[in-house]
């Protein structure tokens, strides 16, 4: 997603802007589209307003994630500024994808939030080692569980651990352990492995299905306790 956004060319942007839009739009969204597809100063003014909107959303996201960036030196606002610039290209390139399923501003926000969130995750993990092996989950195997109610969960855990080594491919094992055991953010892992969020999630999903199947073959099942 990010790569295509960043490498957007002016030509692609202008082709997108020339194409028609269908669907039912609220007045404000229709006005955004009209102005962004206009020519000259009117379009420039709309692009500037859009940029302001995206910068606000990117700053909102960086502020929300500030606790994960406490050890990071440098200007955090740069993250928001870069995210807004990338999001602006993304929104303009994909203007035809907007079908009025939401307000235009909500649709545009998601690009800025996405770009900012990805950059924050990468910055927070810059220089940190990404573990693909299971060091991270050894401690909780010996977490002093009580004897009764925990017996079933311990059996589940042992079977899962065994399944990780017996039913997963090496790639599935690395991805599952990095993401689900060691807590590496998916965008950080995608960058280190030269992959994408979508592809890694697919791998994670397949690995999880195999592990659930492995539990099922042993007459076990896991249903998570309601999180609150």
């Amino acid at each position: 997603m990010t790569a295509t956004v960043v490498t957007a060319t002016v030509g692609a942007v202008e082709r997108t802007l020339a194409a028609p839009t269908t669907g039912f739009l609220d007045d404000e969204s229709r006005e955004w589209l009209r102005a962004l597809r206009a020519e000259g100063p009117e379009r420039d003014e709309a692009v500037a307003r859009l940029h302001t909107l995206l910068l606000k959303a990117a700053r909102f996201e960086v502020a929300r994630r500030r606790p994960t960036l406490q050890h990071v030196r440098g200007d955090l606002d740069e993250i928001a500024v870069e995210a807004a610039a990338d999001a602006l290209l993304g929104v303009l390139r994909r203007l035809d994808d907007f079908r009025g399923a939401s307000r235009f501003t909500t649709w545009a926000y998601k690009f800025a939030l996405y770009e900012a969130a990805v950059k924050v995750r990468k910055r927070a993990w810059q220089g940190r080692e990404v573990l693909l092996e299971a060091e991270g989950w050894e401690p909780f195997a010996d977490s002093g569980l009580g004897p009764d109610a925990e017996v079933e969960q311990r059996e589940l855990l042992e079977t899962v651990r065994e399944g990780v080594h017996s039913v997963l491919t090496p790639h599935q094992r690395q991805v599952l352990i990095a993401l689900a055991v060691n807590g590496v953010p998916i965008d950080v892992l995608a960058e280190r492995l030269g992959s994408t969020r979508g592809a890694l999630y697919k791998t994670l999903h397949d690995a999880r299905r195999r592990l659930r199947g492995h539990l099922g073959e042993r007459g076990l099942a896991f249903a998570s306790v309601e999180e609150k």
Binding site: G144, G146, G198, R208
Partner: peptide
Amino acid sequence: ERRDLNQELGRILGPDGPDIGCDACFR
């Protein structure tokens, strides 16, 4: 401890059921 272990298992095994994936989620 029980809740921690349950959460660990939840993170590893993930939710059950149909899942639209990251690209459709963004869309």
